[in-house]
Nucleic acid binder design. Sequence first.
DNA 1: TCAAATAGGACTATATTAGTCCAAATTAGA
DNA 2: TCTAATTTGGACTAATATAGTCCTATTTGA
Lengths: 133, 133
Amino acid sequence: MIRISKKVEYALMALKFISQSDNKLVTAREISDTKKIPYDLLSKILQKLKNENILLSNQGTNGGYSLNKRTDEIYLFNLMNMLDGDIALADCMHETKEKECSLEDSCSIKSEVAKLQKEVEDVFKNKTISDFV
Amino acid sequence: MIRISKKVEYALMALKFISQSDNKLVTAREISDTKKIPYDLLSKILQKLKNENILLSNQGTNGGYSLNKRTDEIYLFNLMNMLDGDIALADCMHETKEKECSLEDSCSIKSEVAKLQKEVEDVFKNKTISDFV
DNA sequence: TCAAATAGGACTATATTAGTCCAAATTAGA
DNA sequence: TCTAATTTGGACTAATATAGTCCTATTTGA
Ligand code: SF4
Ligand code: SF4
């Protein structure tokens, strides 16, 4: 089964929401309430996006988040990598050799899986947040 | 994280193996041994493929499996559906309404996710086993 | 000083995927 | 007719990944 994670969905909704609140700071609570996204989880996601320089944050009262990039500069592929880690169609395909496949020696489909991975990746590399706004 | 399952990988290797053993029946044990695939799991996969009319089976001594379709008639997309169930990028995208998304009312990205799903699906719909042989 | 907000670690719960175990039915051949 | 090789198939367990929660600290404007 092939899925995009809830984290990524929540991030997409949040980024869309922020991009449509022109320049006004947006709080996690606001997004959570209007979009019915679990507050704590959303907070984590926004913090992550801030650390990845997708968002700017202001702490304290009247704080909140704002975009740090244009929507067409934020690629879905990167977003997925940030939130879910290395996107790999199979164990042997991770950039970082974090996972190894015990079948690598006897595997007869590796090069074809690699080709497939490239094609799927391209779909996500060709989408930016602006496609969602 | 986006992955193709081990089941599908094992199925691909098995189908490739069978397609290259021209006409001779191939046993699950043979494939399991040469490809280092867990025997019980592989058995289940082959049985499934037999029930889906991808393979023919002969029981008993000297039994085994053979292809029931040309390799270019077996689509990766269908294979994935058979083995992993409905391929859906998000909860709301299942053909059968087996899953519901509680955010469906407030969701602002559904149509874009649908577009994305179509693009990813097309990648898998355009691959057949012959691409792996 | 207080309340609203981000920051972030640690934890729990749930779902999915992967793998195992066991017993039955089928069949060729000795 | 017995036996071993094989498919068949249900039930179960283990491992992993995803989703969600809890708690506490820090920042900051009023
Ligand atoms: S089975 Fe082959 S394609 Fe799959 S992860 Fe292992 S080496 Fe890669
Ligand atoms: S959040 Fe939106 S896109 Fe995702 S599953 Fe729910 S309705 Fe579908």
